[in-house]
Design a protein around this nucleic acid. Structure first.
Lengths: 244, 244
DNA sequence: AAACAAGCCTGCAATTTATCAGTTATTGGT
DNA sequence: ACCAATAACTGATAAATTGCAGGCTTGTTT
């Protein structure tokens, strides 16, 4: 990979992350084996972790950081199909297709642990809980994506932008210092999540600001009134458990 | 369940289906155990298999038939988020949320095998290949849904309807007798897949018919020119492997 | 501090899509 | 074969969204 850095080789046992499928669900023997064969790298903000069309050699685990998973369409227009943070997985297991149908980009400096297919397959067959929990992860992501699919199909732009902000708050949280979202994305990236264009995002953000639902400080966004934003999209979710 | 029928009790070993996760990936001991605890029922066309908000007690395996998975939004407007056929799974594994965020409806008479959570969890921990293949199933569905997410966000109505037809052809195939799609859905259901309304679907289907891309015979649709339909959406998919 | 670039904001015109209303065609039951 | 009910079709109108152009703000470099 181009300008990725290798990590100083901390053993998995002493890894500081508090959210890792290997650490939590593999036997100590297998943590050792995986520690041997894993490959840790730093991807800087904006750097591709993998691109659409790249061959799939294994799975990427986010040790520390944040990434966007994007799908590119007509005229290079992007759709962010998923956001991922520490502990999450990038890339889908093989099943025939050997190339990535989506790309992944670090949205801040991000440490990735990579595991190759061979090691993984052995690990899956020898660590049922590891496999089971990865299955739950995919099932949960599928459920979330299915709901988002409906939202993109049915919501107005105002609603989609409101939901985008709530999703960011829920996924990445807020900074203690100023209460702003713990992630910075440009208007175009917000549009790529909400499924619209940068101009519309600007319009809606300005509108939300005038209604005192949010405040802007440079690139950072502060959600002032979550309930107000939730109100905008509330009638789309019959069941409360569907929200965000 | 209301008016579902119980199946004559064929043992899993003698089940005629050629596509079943249990048959293919569980040990013979476990096929026996699962055979004991499973529950088979017939759901007639249009009948709910489960509804949004129902409690999750286990997984539904489609033994024979077809189903749509829908998510209901504002004013009861539905979005079909997934189509499923024999061998597929309905319902996502638990992970905290105990109720279905989506509903499932039979789109033709459908036999379902139901397995409860307790039996399933034991099966998962004792049949690594079973768990592994279920994980692959979810990962594959996630990948497909992510691509569809972008399509719904970026395509025009014409493109979405074209893709809908191609998806139906790919998923359910064509009847040998007349070459028509091996599934019948009303205009509203096509609209619920494509993310638009019934009127627009009618308009596009008429247009496709005039261009000799499809033919209509009553409710049935015959795809005459797959490549023609593919052409309409081709430029949305940079990589050929993404198509449908 | 000035100059520059990049990103953000705003209004308007053009296009697309949704909605509504009315008509025609199909289907299923008697 | 008929009738009633349902679904499909079509056109007109209204609403929402997009795309473009130009100005403004912010942050960075020299």
């Amino acid at each position: 990979m181009a300008n990725t850095q290798k990590r100083e080789n901390t053993h998995c046992c002493h890894c500081s992350t508090n959210c890792c499928f290997v650490q939590d669900f593999c036997s100590s023997t297998w943590v050792g084996i995986i520690n041997q064969s894993r490959n840790s790298s730093l991807y800087q903000k904006g750097q591709y972790i993998f691109r659409e069309g790249d061959r799939v050699f294994g799975l990427h685990f986010i040790q520390q950081g944040k990434a966007k998973i994007t799908s590119t369409g007509l005229n290079g227009r992007e759709q962010i199909v998923r956001l991922a943070k520490s502990g999450h997985i990038l890339g889908h297991m093989g099943n025939g297709s050997e190339t990535y149908p989506v790309g992944a980009v670090a949205i801040e400096d991000t440490w990735i642990c990579f595991l190759d297919n061979t090691t993984l397959n052995d690990a899956f067959l020898n660590n049922p809980k590891f496999t089971y929990n990865l299955m739950l992860f995919y099932a949960t992501e599928l459920r979330k994506t299915e709901i988002r699919l409906r939202h993109l199909a049915q919501m107005t732009i105002k609603e989609k932008v409101a939901e985008c902000l709530l999703t960011l708050k829920k996924t990445f949280g807020e900074r203690t210092e100023d209460g702003s979202l713990n992630v910075t994305l440009c208007r175009q990236e917000l549009a790529d999540i909400a499924g619209t264009n940068a101009e519309q995002v600007t319009r809606e953000l300005t509108d939300f600001e005038n209604q005192l639902l949010i405040a802007k400080s440079g690139k950072r966004i502060i959600v002032l009134d979550s309930d107000g934003l939730l109100n905008i999209i509330a009638h789309h979710n019959i069941n409360k458990y569907l929200s965000v």
